[in-house]
Design a protein around this nucleic acid. Sequence first.
DNA 1: GGTGACCATCTTTTT
DNA 2: GATGGTCACC
Length: 685
Amino acid sequence: MAESTKRYVLKKAPATEESGSPVISAAGISSEQENAFRIDYAQELNPQQLTAVRNIFGPQLVIAGAGSGKTRTLVYRVSYLIEAGVDPAQILLMTFTRKSAQEMMKRASIVLDERCRRIKGGTFHSFANQTLRRFAKHLGFDPSFTILDRGDAEDLLNVVRSELGRNTNDKRFPKKRTLLNVLSKSTNTGRSITDILEDEYPQFIEESAVIEQLAVEFQIYKKERSVMDYDDLLTNLKLLLLENTDIRKKISRENQFIMIDEFQDTNSLQADIAEMLASEHKNLMVVGDDAQSIYSFRGANFHNIMKFPERFPGTKITTLEQNYRSTQPILHFTNAIIKSAEEKYDKTLFSDIEASHGPVYIRATNFEEQAGFISQRVLELHEEGVRLDQIAVLFRAGWHSNELEIELGGANIPFVKYGGLKFVEASHVKDVVSFLRIIQNEKDAIAWYRQLLLLEGIGPKTAQNIVLHVRDSGKGLQALGEKPFDKKKYSDSLQLLRIALEQTRSAQTLEDAVAIATKYYRPILKTNYEDHKKRTDDLDSLIRIATRYESLQTFLDDISLDPPDSTQIGAEASGSEDDKLTLSTIHSAKGLEWHTVFVISLIDGYLPSSRSLNSRAEIEEERRLLYVACTRAQRNLYLIAPELSYSRGFSAVGAGMAFPEPSRFLQEIHDFDELAEEWHLDVEF
DNA sequence: GGTGACCATCTTTTT
DNA sequence: GATGGTCACC
């Protein structure tokens, strides 16, 4: 507002290093032993971190504030265990994404040696997947089961729904998306379907009996076809451990030391699994921060972390409060964000890192100006010697970066985007993947459907008949050429499909298999999609990704459980440039950090999202989201709130969105003016 | 039973 | 601005 003609200026950020940690004498457990260790843990870690590392037996809870060296602690604990003589294969490290597991293993092997790469690590889902493949038979599943992603699960649910006679014209019945939300929430929270309906979807309460039945049918359907959705991976693992004491004991003994990262984002189902995995030895360490709980929509409940000591009597609790990441002014600001939280466990982060400037707050006139400022500022920082991969732009939802992506494209600034729509979720990629899924699991009806519906002349009904025929005839693919399905309309294309499937199955390498699949698919792509030119590049990317895998199964598993990022693929193709700006949803930025962070579109309705205003709990989670975003910054933090947004037709918030207020979380900060400096932008013509 | 044109509805966030 | 659902016609 002030009529400032001064363009923004910024003093160079001091290139501060992490400060050294205090030393504490090695008391207790095995100091002679420790003396023989290659790493001087007392030298490398602060006292709290050291305590957490040395505590190797029994349950342990580590409350770790943002940037407090949580990863460092886990990494050193891994190496400590190995130095103490633990077989790396007996260490299980559960993390939120496979990427962070790999990152930790990498760091651990730098700290110690290659043995650290032999520990087991991954997400709950990937661990469940591996375990279930070993013991699938005990649950009546085929070990070559395929995994349904969200869309597949919804489609299958729709099939079941229509078989129950609730398909058309029924405005009173929830859509597949809602249905899956309800079922998923029920499994992930352990609450009954009726309970959830009453609470969140009262308009459908009358249908609760039907929905309960639908849930049962859905389970049967999936089992018959040897497919599991994300939730099944967890529930089936739990079931396996619960019903087979000998298997549970075996698995628990195989994993003598279990560590779980980001525990505030696990749900009770995952906590149950963790408990059973540790049942034989209780060597379970969980690490988390209640202030960073941002996954309650997936059934996570940050109270879980506080309940951990009740669940595991004798839990040792360690709190890490010193922050090694951000400057003190940034921490003053982030502490202020979380201070307004209704429910919090007091924890004030502090840092040794001084700085002359705090977070910067900017009101841009609109989204284009916001984008323009970022690209200009990024270029300047780059000039000053900050690598692009040390800069990130964070936002609430994937589409919030639309204008920015255009701007960056125009300014030739390379970037990767995380979160939002994924490469493998694009329909043409799913088409090819479903083709491959048929090879792995001939019973996978959803994959069959998808393939068959691509063929001219085949609709839902014929597709269903063909799938049933293939299953019941017992002749496998040969059945595709048989009697009722030799109609002229589609028999030729059906034969082409059969031949392609057979060729793919007998391919020597996975790469060949994917190449055959895409070759078969290319003409279909051309007729089905207007913009097939753009999409065809993705098929090449898929082949390239396949080269990294040995077996079809691991390839397909990773596609569902650890999918490659969409724009990363595009960027991979476009050049060798490694130094890229990061654009990311706040959720996907979890656990990461950058020299400079821009948090954009900080207006009410965006953050908090207009869809999260239904309850105090939801709003509080949005606040934590802002907290997570801001605590990613090491040296520079820019907060941007556009004054104008377009309300193009969609009426989620109505016309009021045209002149949005800055995020309420910013407005709630009392000393905002002292904690952040405001810059005014001047556009030069 | 399949197709295609028209309409509505959304889009958080992730395994 | 895409995707899904509905309806009328083949």
